[in-house]
Design a protein around this nucleic acid. Structure first.
Lengths: 199, 199, 199, 199
DNA sequence: CCATAACCGAGACGGTACGTCGCGTCTTGAT
DNA sequence: ATCAAGACGCGACGTACCGTCTCGGTTATGG
């Protein structure tokens, strides 16, 4: 997402700039929110030239998206031995991410996705897809262990599992708490478990 | 939300302007998305003066929020006799709204909520709260009919029921279909139903 | 050259801004030369918004051209009773103009004329044409008085009369002095005078 | 003017680059004018590195000045036997030069002279001075032949002779034609000739 | 019936951020 | 020491909206 050079020719990029920029963006998100982020502001804060940012990211939205993607990272798809454990691990990374700068930045990111199809595609591929894949794997393991019934609509379950965290972050009608986190996972597990034997 | 004048004296407001503006905003949302909405653009499109818009709404975000709130409207809180029916009715209004201009405008609204606490409060109060209240009532009726078990975390259930629609609209990783709608409602109903008798 | 509004509608232009801008431009030309002129610098110097300049002139070159045209002004085409007197009066306005900010600005103006055909046309029309016309009239009066011979190539004479002032200003190989001014006029008069009777 | 390296060690300069650059600059001047000349553009056009240009000329204006000086060249100071012939020869080289890329480049050169005193000095020395010296020699020969009267202000005559060509080139109010060329020379010769005997 | 007050239209104003372009310098690896 | 490649710092450009303001002109209504 941050343009890379081809061969070994030419003066090499100063890797520190990348780090400084991302740090400044995340700090800006955390402290004042997305709308306060300015290319010029970032550049001045880290004492670099505006040009050096535009050399790496074609526009503000790409820059912020890049920072957010790095922050959200890739959930390690823990294998804890139980569906509940796996899902709680997956969801915990979401909760942690949203508690930091990402929480304030998410709304801005979403807005830019709406006006830049390519950006939206990238975010879906780089962030959402990876996380969903790891959660699908958790369901597959549970299925192999006989913990889940058949005919589940996994995609919908994944939405019901994760969407509430995005929703609460974006609309702020209720906080994301450990209790709420456990409740969501518990409900999903309940939906997925096999029919009781004597039915 | 659209500012009103004081006494009865003076030239009266031209009510048509309100209508024209809202229509133009929704049309703009539908056709080109939130970021393409411009106070000046709206004014030119309907052949009115910019002043006339600022006289009604203090800023662009208020205007757009007003248009969106009106479009989302208040879910009629249908009482169909069954929890599944009630929830499907409630969710159907969401689905319809997101299929129209609101779908494209949601991201922008969310972004402005993130930078304007007062606006966020208003949206939560005027839009989310009303819808949630009607759904809570549906759960209460179901409880009275003995359709649900006790100890349910209704707030979490409401999030799991509605968040997927916001989530899919904002991130676009999967479409909102009738099949998906039914699946979500079915899962929620399943989570809420009483324990099978012979357990 | 500075865009004018149509009817009487809308908030009227603040005429002071025009004056302040022109004064600042001329002062900048005089003190630091053309290349030091900056839209933003002008705006800051007079405490106005950059927008207010762009509202009047579409670009820096238009602004500077406008300032210069005003400064060069229109030579009043004095009628002193003799060709020498008329030409000296006409040339004197040139000399005065080039001694001020215009001298430093002329090179920049010329450069911009070379890259903007429309601007070049305007300058020729508004500045050169007017001055030449008044000098042509002086020759016509001299002709009526019998001071000049027939068959003169007036256009070439006008170039030989005025070009040296532009030339010395632009290339700086020699100063423009009263003595040089008189010499140029004297030579032109000599070229134009009738053949001596007994030839 | 094109910087030279020190000792004999190291990889030798590629002389072709000098030629390619100058050719590209003159071609750029001719086709799109001074403002379209770009260090980077030149380098790309000839497939060389920007560094190779900066190694030879310290800045864009030096490069262009160098190209122009070479193009204007040194007038051969012809000795045709008559003042008219000598001056026509001298002026013809001017006319030819201005008909080519130099014509479009002159304005830009003049602008850079205005903001770089050293450059201005160089141009005056390398270009103007040489040409004027050769024309002064022509006047000296004419004086020796008794073709001119005494007390002439040669410097002013030289300006009146050559300035019109610069002037018309820079302002474009009239073309430079053979007819106009002859007229200018004829007027200068007329100004310079001795007083008619019977006066 | 006519004065007042709020409206409407038009557009200038101050301001912020954007993304682009060109400059001239610096840093690298390879001839 | 050159060459090719390209990052870097810098400064200015012109654009786009924002939200505020100041005009002249319009229209109900209340003294």
């Amino acid at each position: 997402m941050s343009g890379r050079r081809g061969g070994g020719s030419g003066r090499p990029r100063d890797e520190r700039i990348d780090t400084e920029v991302i740090a400044a963006v995340l700090d800006g998100l955390r402290r004042r929110g997305y709308h306060a982020i300015t290319i010029d502001g970032i550049a001045r804060k880290i004492g670099r030239a505006r040009t050096s940012l535009y050399r790496r990211w074609p526009s503000k939205r790409h820059l912020v998206a890049y920072a957010i993607v790095g922050e959200l990272g890739y959930s390690p798809a823990a294998d804890t031995g139980s569906l509940r454990g796996d899902l709680e691990a997956a969801v915990a990374t979401l909760r942690r991410a949203f508690a930091g700068p990402l929480g304030r930045g998410l709304a801005g990111l979403v807005a830019h996705m709406a006006q830049d199809v390519a950006l939206a595609r990238t975010i879906r591929r780089e962030v959402l897809a990876a996380r969903r894949q790891s959660m699908r794997a958790a369901f597959a393991r549970a299925s192999a262990r006989g913990e889940t019934r058949t005919g589940l609509n996994i995609e919908v379950l994944l939405d019901m599992l994760t969407a509430p965290f995005y929703y609460r972050t974006l609309f702020g009608h209720a906080p994301i708490t450990p209790h709420m986190t456990r409740a969501v996972v518990a409900y999903v597990v309940r939906m997925a478990r096999p029919e009781p034997a004597g039915a």
